[in-house]
Nucleic acid binder design. Structure first.
Length: 287
DNA sequence: GGCAGGAGTACCCACATTAC
DNA sequence: GTAATGTGGGTACTCCTGCC
């Protein structure tokens, strides 16, 4: 079965822009033409590919075609560049990165890829996998080692997290040390309800779960500000710990990171992969 | 064959009207 | 005063027809 490139582009435009009208404007055709391309593609594959709602979203059958559309667009631009044809002076690449990597080692990646316009998505691992499946991003720095279909996985090393708080916080809540009784009363921080780093540290220290009050702070800046304000203790990337903070326990956690990217014979994918692996060389070796 | 343009249809939303 | 219902306008998509 052959898939028409223009029909693929129409599918991608509809899902990315959220409506047939916006997709038509983007592709410089009428909404009627977009509707006909989508319908023809759906008839060709025998499945509904777009849920007609606000905004339009891809059906599960449409997801692999979206990824194919993104990969086709990348290969097309590389081929044009190789021919010395109408290649754009800038190449836009979309990546998903977890927030702590973005705040630390990943910044060097941005400086090592000239001629690239970045579209960075700060996402948790679940959403990163979804963006990869849909072809929204060409690669993701994630804590998930299981590969997304159609993607390769490269281990990058591990980020070390340490449990920290301010001196005032420790004097107020942990004057006799980080005991189980004190931990049950001392407020801690977490990004959100899925953030298990603090729970993991507690289990590592006490060999059991300890219920405790938790503040949910869902941004990197807010999390740091909350530690700084003495709101609670939290697991923080070792290299971002401020001099005035103190560890509340000697234990730490090493979180392995992985680079997942399209399994594609593309110079851009290879270049980005090499750059990211090089930038991640400073991470701790996985044990 | 593919596209544009017009007509038809469905849906949503805001507002007005009516009943209780 | 409040809830239910009706109405009109706007938006979005599909289908049909004619043109290139």
């Amino acid at each position: 079965m052959r898939i028409d490139g223009q029909q693929l582009a129409a599918l991608a435009a509809v899902v990315e822009s959220g409506s047939f009208d916006a997709a038509a404007a983007r592709l410089h055709v009428t909404p009627s033409a977009v509707s006909q391309r989508i319908k023809a593609l759906e008839q060709r594959v025998g499945q509904v590919l777009v849920v007609r709602e606000k905004p339009c979203v891809a059906t599960p059958a449409g997801v692999p075609l979206l990824r194919l559309a993104a990969q086709t667009a990348l290969l097309e631009s590389e081929a044009l560049a190789e021919m010395g044809g109408e290649a754009a002076p800038w190449t836009r690449i979309a990546l998903a990165v977890n927030a702590d990597s973005m705040a630390t080692w990943f910044t060097t990646v941005l400086a090592r890829l000239p001629g690239v316009l970045f579209d960075i998505h700060i996402e948790d691992q679940d959403h990163s996998a979804q963006l990869l499946r849909e072809g929204v991003v060409m690669g993701a720095v994630t804590t998930e080692r299981r590969s997304v279909p159609g993607c390769r996985v490269h281990p990058l090393g591990a980020m070390r997290y340490v449990p920290v708080a301010t001196v005032d916080y420790v004097e107020r809540y942990l004057p006799h040390g980080f005991t189980a009784a004190a931990a049950a009363q001392a407020p801690s921080l977490a990004w959100n309800r899925a953030d298990a780093l603090q729970d993991s540290l507690v289990r590592k220290v006490f060999r059991k779960d300890v219920g405790r009050p938790v503040h949910f702070i869902p941004t990197a800046e807010g999390f740091g500000a909350a530690v700084r304000a003495g709101l609670g203790w939290g697991m923080y990337p070792e290299e971002l710990v401020e001099p005035s903070w103190v560890p509340i326990a000697p234990q730490h956690l090493d979180v392995p990171l992985y680079w997942q990217c399209w399994k594609l014979d593309s110079e851009m994918v290879s270049t980005v992969t090499d750059t990211i692996r090089s930038a991640a060389a400073g991470l701790r070796a996985r044990r």
